[in-house]
Amino acid sequence: MRELELRRILGAKVVDSEGAHLGRLEEIEAERGEESCVINSYIVEHRGLLDRVSTWALTSSMRQRLLAKSPRPYRVGWNQMDLRDPHHPRTLLPKELLERVTE
């Protein structure tokens, strides 16, 4: 049973199983249960300067207008992410097989 502080992995550069650069780990999707809060997936994305600064990127309408050209973020399932080295997360699948986030 391992514990990890969020700040160790937040903002870390994520690569896929082939070593291709995917972006940074910027957000974690979770679900509130009765006793605990389980993690469903990690959001990995390329972020511009404005986005680095705003943690609500995905809901901000201003960002949507600016976002037209940027590639869409990846949604990596909890069982698709290897966090044994927290500073260098790796996905277990190549990027072509990873789900993309739709706005």
Partner: peptide
């Protein structure tokens, strides 16, 4: 700038 971003956030 951050203040304006806030003022445009409907959340």
């Amino acid at each position: 700038v951050p203040f304006l971003i806030l003022m445009n956030d409907d959340a």
